[in-house]
Simulated scan of single mutants.
Amino acid sequence: MFPERSGIIVWFSDLKAASKHLEKYGNVHYLSKKLHYAAMYVYSSRLDETVKQLQKLPFVKKVERSYRNEIKTEYNNNIPDKTRFYTL
């Protein structure tokens, strides 16, 4: 139903240029004025070509991929429940 998206962090030198131009490459989630970075979401199918295009922009210093999709987010509890030993 929803397309698969990946997160990227774009480090930039010019806030005004970043706020104008980054919207056409993906969904800008957050722009940090103080630290000069933007958190964005782009389609996973076009991730590599979008990163290459962003790196060519004159105000972009560095582009980093988010590895959140690759981290296991389902946890299991293998520790036995000790509450039954401490009941009155």
Rank of each mutant, 00 (worst) to 15 (best):
A38K: 02
L47P: 06
K16R: 10
I8T: 02
N77L: 07
V51P: 03
K20M: 09
I71E: 10
K62S: 11
L15I: 13
S13H: 14
L88S: 13
H29T: 15
I71V: 13
K24W: 03
V42D: 06
G26L: 00
V10P: 00
G26F: 01
L31D: 04
I79C: 02
Y43N: 15
W11P: 01
R65F: 10
K52R: 15
S66Y: 01
V63E: 05
E70S: 05
K56M: 07
V28I: 07
Y75Q: 07
I71L: 14
Y43G: 08
P58G: 06
T50H: 09
Y37M: 02
F85S: 08
V51S: 06
K56I: 02
N69R: 15
I9V: 14
D81W: 06
F2I: 10
R46N: 04
G26N: 00
L15Q: 07
Y43H: 13
Y86W: 13
D48I: 06
E4Q: 06
S13Q: 15
K33A: 14
S19W: 00
R5I: 11
K20T: 08
E4M: 06
K16L: 11
S19V: 10
S32A: 05
E64L: 15
A17K: 12
V28P: 03
K33G: 13
M40Y: 03
I79E: 05
R65Q: 06
Y75C: 11
M40S: 01
Y86Q: 11
L35Q: 09
Y37G: 05
K33C: 09
S66P: 03
R68S: 15
T83E: 12
R5S: 13
Y25E: 02
T73G: 09
Y67D: 15
Y86V: 07
K33I: 03
